[in-house]
């Protein structure tokens, strides 16, 4: 397990730093976890493509010294699908926000999962729209405030894990920025997994979510994250009261099903074509 201070610089595009993320934002932790996974797996930066959508999480591709695309809001998985099909040897990593994956791009999210294309989607879920200044997201919990739900949110939130599993993703995990060691562990598993993998990481937004809901600064928000979640593997040890309204963390699915580029290669082969998957 690489610890702080170990060299990740071969993966980083240092000329683009500092990052746009606010002090205390959890996205930097996720970014670092991704870089750690690259190092753990000893991936060749020339064989990685990092793609992002629009929003705070969408800036991730700028900071990796790989081929990278900062695409359009919500549509990043469509670009990733085209890129992966055109060059299946690439390890395609997608950074998306909760707005990207669950609102404007929900349609693309479920279809990428349904196809089971070998792309790793890392969903930075901070429960709010950060880049535009703190508006309600489809991940904002009930009764929470945002600049567009000043009287409290009355819309139920999506559960990313349930959505991804229902849509057919074959690796689905959830953790938080508090769980510093689990982030790279799950991301590495997801990258190695031959199929569509989703790692949802609950991230803190002190600037908007924390402030508008009077939850305090980044350390307070990390504690809050911890208080709102439990490890799925501990379920038998917990009482109902200890779990109600909280989100389980862990790996919820890890299974092998036919992967899209491999299936496409078979289709080509059956009809006389050669496609290199």
């Amino acid at each position: 397990m690489p610890r702080i201070g170990e060299d990740l610089t071969s993966y980083l595009r240092e000329g683009m730093m500092p990052t746009v993320w606010c002090p205390g934002c959890g996205h930097g932790n996720i970014f670092r976890a991704i870089a750690e996974s690259f190092r753990q797996l000893n991936l060749d930066p020339s064989r990685i493509a990092v793609l992002g959508g629009i929003g705070c999480s969408g800036r991730t591709p700028f900071y990796f010294n790989t081929n990278a695309m900062h695409t359009t809001h919500g549509r990043v998985l469509a670009f990733a699908t085209g890129l992966k099909l055109a060059n299946p040897r690439l390890t395609v990593i997608v950074a998306m926000g909760d707005g990207d994956a669950l609102a404007i791009g929900a349609g693309h999210f479920v279809h990428a999962a349904r196809r089971n294309i070998d792309v790793t989607a890392i969903l930075y879920n901070n429960s709010i729209y950060g880049m535009t200044g703190g508006q309600e997201a489809p991940s904002t919990p009930l009764a929470f405030r945002s600049t567009t739900s000043p009287f409290g949110n009355i819309e139920p939130a999506f559960d990313t894990v349930e959505l991804a599993m229902a849509a057919g993703a074959t690796y689905v995990a959830r953790t938080t920025t508090f769980d510093f060691d689990d982030m790279p562990r799950y991301i590495s598993e997801a990258i190695l997994h031959p199929g569509f993998s989703v790692v949802e990481i609950l991230s803190q937004c002190p600037t908007y979510f924390g402030r508008l809901n009077q939850l305090g600064d980044a350390p307070e928000l990390l504690k809050y994250e911890r208080s709102q979640t439990f490890l799925a593997e501990n379920t038998p040890l917990l009482t109902k009261a200890e779990m109600v309204g909280k989100r389980p963390l862990g790996v919820f699915r890890n299974e092998i099903r036919p992967e899209y580029t491999k299936e496409y290669a078979k289709l080509c082969q059956a009809h006389g074509g050669t496609y290199h998957a």
Partner: peptide, 10 residues
């Protein structure tokens, strides 16, 4: 979107 991704994929 996929077309643009594929173009960058060569």
């Amino acid at each position: 979107g996929a077309v643009i991704g594929a173009a960058w994929g060569g």
